[in-house]
Amino acid sequence: MTHANAALTPKHRLRLARAVVEQGWTPAYAATVFNVSAPTARKWADRYLVGGPAAMEDRSSRPHHCPRRTPAPVVRKIVHLRWKKRLGPVQIAGRLGLAASTVHAVLVRCRLNRLSHVDRATGEPIRRYEHDHPGSLIHVDVKKLGNIPDGGGHRYVGRPQGDKHRAATPGKPKNAHHNPKMGTAFVHTVIDDHSRVAYAEIHDDETAATAIAVLRNATAWFAARGVPVQRVLSDNGSAYRSHAWREACAELGITPKRTRPYRPQTNGKIERFHRTLADGWAYGRMFTTETARRKALPAWLHEYNHHRPHTATGSRPPITRLNNLSGQYS
């Protein structure tokens, strides 16, 4: 490939070659005129004689024959260990008696050098899915967060000061070590599979009754925006395996579905949303009380739904996919 300061671009190579072949210039004289060496001038003239103007382009530097290339059976073994065992180049090299650099080169050539490209459970390439319209499927799950003591938690003030804040927070029961129990905030989240629009409520438990109440509120929230919910996907938590959950879904006209055990990837959209929720809201800035953090959730959700660009929706806010359906922005 030619660089910015190359003496001969393909156009000038053609001029040099024609001067030698068609005009009778000597390679030495052409080299002087075009400011290159005589062997270089002779090389392009010979290429022009063989291939014409098309031969003036750069050729691939790949060798025509590579006798020491990694054999295909060895490549298959490397790929198998990468997919099925999720081993790195050093571990694979140890098993097969190869150099780690050789294994890494094979993984790069097969586009398996990043483990993020491989499904954790099956070792197969990741297969993503998305329903074709809003409301076709919603994901539900619960994110557990420790309550913040008055004055701030240890993430921002440090462990020693955080322990003092815990001890000073009034009205909390004691654990076995006589430290106050701060309790847990259960964030019940709902996200639409197609649009990535999210709905969330914070409660003090994750019982079936609470999960059903959140589902009713979420379906009403989506219905107000012109989106009827058809299916709901959950994990295998006790609330979602209960008869009450199944009966509530039947009453709402929703088909309940559950992921396979130990397969959070199937519910991966809401799992990824929980990471965004934690980084952007729960731990995004310092809150001096749990009440202040809970009051900040609605504003963050509005920012996420209406203003934050999402890569899965063409770098636009998730609400735009609902707007295309319902024609409203609320």
Rank of each mutant, 00 (worst) to 15 (best):
K11F: 11
A17R: 08
E22D: 11
Q23I: 00
A28H: 12
P39H: 06
K43T: 08
W44K: 12
R47Y: 06
G51N: 07
M56W: 05
P63D: 07
P63F: 07
C66L: 14
I78W: 00
V79Q: 05
W83L: 15
Q91I: 03
I92P: 02
I92M: 08
R95S: 02
S101E: 14
V108G: 01
C110L: 02
I126S: 03
I126D: 01
E130N: 08
S136N: 14
I138F: 09
I138S: 11
D141I: 01
K144D: 01
K144V: 01
A167S: 09
A167R: 15
T169G: 11
A176Y: 00
N179Q: 15
N179H: 14
K181T: 06
G183P: 02
F186A: 06
V187H: 09
H194T: 07
S195E: 03
V197L: 13
E206P: 01
T207R: 12
I212Y: 03
Q230V: 13
N236C: 13
S238I: 07
H243Q: 12
W245A: 09
E247W: 09
A248L: 10
A250E: 08
P264D: 02
T266A: 15
W281R: 11
T288D: 10
A292Q: 12
R293G: 06
R294Q: 14
A296W: 01
Y304L: 08
N305E: 03
S315P: 00
N324T: 14
